[in-house]
Design a protein around this nucleic acid. Sequence first.
DNA 1: TCCCATGGTGTATAGTTATTCATTTGTTAT
DNA 2: ATAACAAATGAATAACTATACACCATGGGA
Lengths: 157, 157
Amino acid sequence: MGNRTERLLAIRNIISSQKVSNQEELLELLEKKGLNYTQATLSRDLKFLKVNKISDRGRGYIYELPDQHHLPGQELAETYAAQGFVSIQFANKLGVIKTLPGYAPSIASLIDKANPFEIVGTLAGDDTILIIPHDNVSEKDVINTLIMILPELKDKI
Amino acid sequence: MGNRTERLLAIRNIISSQKVSNQEELLELLEKKGLNYTQATLSRDLKFLKVNKISDRGRGYIYELPDQHHLPGQELAETYAAQGFVSIQFANKLGVIKTLPGYAPSIASLIDKANPFEIVGTLAGDDTILIIPHDNVSEKDVINTLIMILPELKDKI
DNA sequence: TCCCATGGTGTATAGTTATTCATTTGTTAT
DNA sequence: ATAACAAATGAATAACTATACACCATGGGA
């Protein structure tokens, strides 16, 4: 997969685990991970990820991911669901995900819950999920979106 | 009361009722209310109010007040509680609020719930509340804080 | 009362982030 | 495969926000 996805994931990780108060700082942290980009790109990434800049209890501002639902079970559900993922293919603008038997509903449910703009809806059988993308959303967009929802898919797609 | 409080209240009102995406814009809205200040002051006010700048669903950024608990009953509780407020005095760094009989607990409870930095704690009887401010917090700070919590007090203090 | 300390403000400017433009890179349809 | 189109990126810069400094006002203590 392209490097942009890697970068977006790294940004999510960094922001969720430590206080970052400006883009220069974040840029340096990304460099340490071998990701070299410019502030312009970072600004666009943060906008894409809908990252907020919130008050650090009156002492300045820091970045924060949106919807820190942070249900403790969430990561587990992701890991479980990702295990069942087998492949994704596209046909006639539609995505078809194959899963291990029985996994389709849980993966589809995670996608539905994330409710990304890029995906109009999903239809899950037992081992197959139909992904209906929005108009003008590319296959790559769909894949990026799926990776954003289920980071564990990164190496399986 | 000084004009700063008026400004802070106006900022809260504006931000909670409409989308504002930068300080210039907010400055103009304040001007329409007869409040003329500079961007520098506004920047400080926003920091003081712990206002966040959050993603407007990927379309840019807008200001948002912290803790939008937005319990529908909140405003009612404030109005009710403020009615019972009679006066505030200071002695030995402590604030003493007099209320109508029976009102003290509800007012104190609102203060406690807001949990402002400036106030270490409160002690409520039936018609009296003791306010224990933090060290190095002035009377004026305490009053400003109370007004931030209960805007209706503005004209009663 | 008179100081001194503290806080609020504006001006100017430093610091930070978003966007424009040019270019490259990737994607889709023929 | 290739043309046409769309997306990604960096450099430069515009747009936006925070702060250093100077100044004034206020208010508590000698």
